[in-house]
Amino acid sequence: MTVVAALAYALLGGGALLALVRLALGPSLLDRVVATDTLLVVIACGLAVYAALERNPTVVPVLVVVSLLAFVGSVSIARYVGGMLLRSEDDTQAGGTAADRRPGGAR
């Protein structure tokens, strides 16, 4: 079981490190969103591996919270970036068409 633990933690650590590299390098915001999502999944997997190898169920509620947090974070950043897109479209057509358009309705 010690070999399994070392191997699993090494694989998870490598995955998390590479996701951190993409999080630092990523040229756009959405690359960082994808990298953060993957990083949270790797963290959840690491917590589950710890709970399994130590037979210690105290970190299992943390697992639920982390998976909820990954979903809420990526969806809210995607909504935010989409809101920037809609606002820029309204700005460029700020003549007569944007005035009578329902805000946020151009979708």
């Binding site: 933690y9 995955g15 590479l18 993409r22 994808v34 999502d37 999944v41 591996v49």
Partner: peptide, 30 residues
């Protein structure tokens, strides 16, 4: 099961670093 899951996490990291744009990185990262 744990080792295969951890291996998938490593492949996700590799694909995130090596793939060219957002959609292919998403394909690897998910």
């Amino acid at each position: 099961c744990l080792l295969v899951g951890a291996l998938l996490c490593l492949t996700a990291g590799l694909g995130l670093v090596r793939f060219p744009d957002v959609l292919s990185r998403m394909h690897a990262g998910t």
